[in-house]
Design a protein around this nucleic acid. Sequence first.
DNA 1: TTGTAAGCGTTATCAC
DNA 2: GTGATAACGCTTACAA
Lengths: 335, 335
Amino acid sequence: MVTIADVAKRAGVSKMTVSRVINNSGYISQKTRERVEQAIDELGYVPNSLARSLRFKTTATIALILTDITNPFFTTVARGVEDTAREHGFSVMFCNTDESEDVEAQYLNVLIQKQVDGLLLVPACSSARAATLLQERHVPFVLLDRYIPGMTVDNVRSDSEQGAYELVQHLVQLGHRDIALLGGPPQITTTIDRVTGYLRALEEAGLRDRAIVCHGGYTQESGYRMTKEVLAADPRPTALFGVNNFIAIGALRALREAQYQVPDDISVVAFDDLSSAFLIEPFLTVSNQSPYEMGKVGTSLLLARLANPEPTTPQEIMLPTQLIVRKSSGPPPAK
Amino acid sequence: MVTIADVAKRAGVSKMTVSRVINNSGYISQKTRERVEQAIDELGYVPNSLARSLRFKTTATIALILTDITNPFFTTVARGVEDTAREHGFSVMFCNTDESEDVEAQYLNVLIQKQVDGLLLVPACSSARAATLLQERHVPFVLLDRYIPGMTVDNVRSDSEQGAYELVQHLVQLGHRDIALLGGPPQITTTIDRVTGYLRALEEAGLRDRAIVCHGGYTQESGYRMTKEVLAADPRPTALFGVNNFIAIGALRALREAQYQVPDDISVVAFDDLSSAFLIEPFLTVSNQSPYEMGKVGTSLLLARLANPEPTTPQEIMLPTQLIVRKSSGPPPAK
DNA sequence: TTGTAAGCGTTATCAC
DNA sequence: GTGATAACGCTTACAA
């Protein structure tokens, strides 16, 4: 490895002079600058950020910990994060936890040791463990998508409650009275808030006691299973509300298998737009989030914190959702 | 920040003793070990990997540079990379180039400065620039998905030629004589190889002179545009071969708009399975790749190189593809 | 079993 | 304008 000392020797100057050339700091005669630059070229010298970081206590690196990059929602969040970080000269390390708190904890340790300047975190299970650790270690972080009940920290998320409310209200207006919610894990705030919005809409319509709430994973298989269940129940719902994209797909598959026509026999609505990139013809009625925006805003907030470490009151940023009515929702079948 | 010196002072020992405790190296009396461990706990000491890396010249970090994490194919590759890296105690930095060689070059510089131990690279434009730079700098790397014509370096990719051959052969057997290939950029090896396989299948069927080859981007819009074009041409193809998933979706959309029925009026086949996760009912006939495997194998190869830096002959690993016949391909319409 | 000194590649500080 | 020195946090080699 060629170091600053090699360059210095070759150019016949001191290390400091080379350093000054590299960083454009202090005064340097045009002549020495050229000599140094030539030496750098000849030797193919590349500064070692590690050494630099050791001095500066700053790595220009942040991390994004999320549950599964395989979900297009998070993929888009990730793009928002990376693009924004790049604009500001930061690099990003990505980590998938698969909702495991242990994996999350392991990653956190590694990342802290690697001295990342800050973190963006989709907390596994909406648990406080990670956030608490980060606070103890004084590592700046911003929560994405989820928050932690009872803990006020920087976070950027969608207005899940309102989004769910609008979806269910839409169904109610179409005439549905038995609407089943197919939820994710009951402790995760996105599910909690969407259930709340769902209940609020039912309440308003005087349907509070007809609520049907299932919980499962944020996966297709889970959506499939929950759908089978509610179809077998009495009363059988005339509409399903999938709390995320994968659950809704599982539901549609189950319906297909059971020979239900959507929306004629049963309506389906969901959170998250499955980016139209993947579908020939989007047909799900959804409450659309802005994942790219979420990544972008979260990163901006984090970088602002890094630039100005004085503690300010935590910011909770709520991104609006947008109701998009498509073909998967219609009036309930006549009795 | 609490350092090893703080711990040493608190425990009343030297820095070295603390270091030995942390790394479980050398002999230490049970008693001092406990004292040190207690001090570590009390102070909340976390070792600084930066300092360690500076000494060891090793960061336990690799990078994955790809063109667009938003494409589910690459998302899955990324998962394969991360899972494998994690198993071996490595962290991963992700970078999207959007096919820009400049962005690629910038990232490369940053990553080299950050002293990543090695890189996995989907070369933008299949260009040699990046690979050449890495060779000069002696940074171990493995090419993923694409290779660089005329350059023999470690790489892991799908057997594009054979996959394309099988798809086109399938169409020929169904009776198609006018098959249009909707390609990506003409310099990218995945497109080149798929064109080759396409031509080989046509050749064998004596249809070589009926070949219709378009080039565009690996995007939906491009697939849409190319489809409009070939539909307007004479002879009008009875089958389309989309060279990747997004192109095929664009094609389907264009067909839909032009009121063509698939497969009755026209057949469509493509590379890349759009993970069934996204579709209620997969219906495209495809040549399926193994992106997770690609990430996994590539990472294993890279880590093997890191573990044993003696130069060996480059390995070129070709992953098989799998023809999956679904409903989007059928016999051509009767004249 | 434990400690001392030197060095990894940089840069801030203060001389010259 | 430029250079010597020390320091960032850690570990290897050698002593004690």
